[in-house]
Simulated scan of single mutants.
Amino acid sequence: MNIFKQLVKSIYSPKDIALFRFQGIGKTILYVFLLTLISILPSIIYLSTALTTGIDSARTIISKELPDFSIKKGQLTADTLVPVTSNQDNFTIILDPTGTISDTDVENEGNAFALLKDEFVLAAGGQSNIYPYAMLQGLNFSKEDLLNFIDTIAGNRGIIIPLLSLFIYLVSSASSFVEVSVLAIIGLVLKNLLGRKLTYRQLWRMAAYSETLPTLFFTIMAAIKTSVPNSFMINWLVVIIVLYLAINEIPKPKKKITE
């Protein structure tokens, strides 16, 4: 069965997920990479769109509407006592040295770029990427530096977008493998509760395919820019239920008849 047929089967068939425990580990790893790619497609598309259409709007807003500011020693300071928010062409820029606005607030804005007290946030399509200033040791940044940086991005967007997409993909892939590994550990508990004989390697394969349904669901929600409350808990609840059903499809070991 090819990997795309497995994708379809894994949406609705715990029985097929159970059968996938016998396949090679290489194919399962490839499947995790495929799921990760699917899951980040909305983010990459929205990021590309926001970067392409938002550069001109951002330059206009920053130069004309934002007060002078600077980032030193991991903190934002600005000539304002309240958060400043400006919107142009469906792109929002936020400057908040007060700590009032959170990254969730930025995410709810849709396409937005925010300089917050301790971090900057880039949001696109209901999802956000957060970068603390502390990550950049010795960062000294001003309004004029930001304008120059925007001009640089505008001239190199054909290189920047693929590099950002690759970075997002690699980070997301690492996160996916960690999630599958943790789910497989949970599977060890489930298989003991259900009285099934399975190894961790088999459970890891099954865990990878159990991720299919919630991954596709949240990808669709991201594509239509719909935020799902408690998405973290819902994701884990669904994958655990799917893995439980898959383990339950495996026949119990036959009991030895003693004379």
Rank of each mutant, 00 (worst) to 15 (best):
L51F: 08
L170T: 06
I224C: 11
I130Q: 10
F217Y: 15
N230W: 15
I161L: 09
I159N: 12
L193T: 10
L51P: 00
F167P: 00
S181H: 09
Q75D: 09
L216T: 03
V106G: 05
L139I: 02
S181A: 14
T219M: 09
I17D: 03
K15E: 15
S86I: 00
E249F: 07
I160M: 09
A174S: 09
I224M: 12
L139D: 02
T104M: 14
K252C: 00
N148F: 11
I224K: 09
I247T: 04
G158H: 11
Y131L: 12
E211Q: 15
S176W: 04
R201G: 08
A58W: 13
Y133A: 06
N230E: 14
I61H: 06
L115F: 15
G138P: 05
L116H: 10
V121Q: 10
T98L: 05
L139A: 08
N2Y: 05
R196W: 09
V238L: 15
L170G: 01
L170P: 01
Y31G: 06
T215Q: 05
F149K: 07
T85V: 15
K191H: 06
I168G: 03
L41N: 00
T49H: 11
T199N: 09
L163Y: 05
L146S: 04
R205D: 04
N87L: 10
L34K: 05
L115V: 05
G187Y: 05
V106Q: 05
N140I: 15
R59H: 10
I130Y: 10
P83D: 06
M206C: 04
A184F: 13
S39T: 05
T100L: 14
S142D: 08
K73Y: 11
I240P: 02
L76A: 13
F167K: 02
E107H: 00
P251I: 00
P14W: 07
I61T: 09
P214R: 01
L237Y: 08
T85W: 04
R157T: 09
A18N: 03
N87Q: 12
L216K: 08
P251V: 00
K72V: 14
A78M: 02
L188P: 08
S70G: 09
L198W: 07
S63V: 00
G24Q: 11
I40Q: 03
F91G: 03
F120K: 03
G54C: 13
L183R: 01
F232P: 05
T77C: 01
V106T: 08
G155Y: 01
L139M: 05
V182Q: 07
K256C: 00
P162M: 08
R205T: 01
M233D: 04
G99M: 13
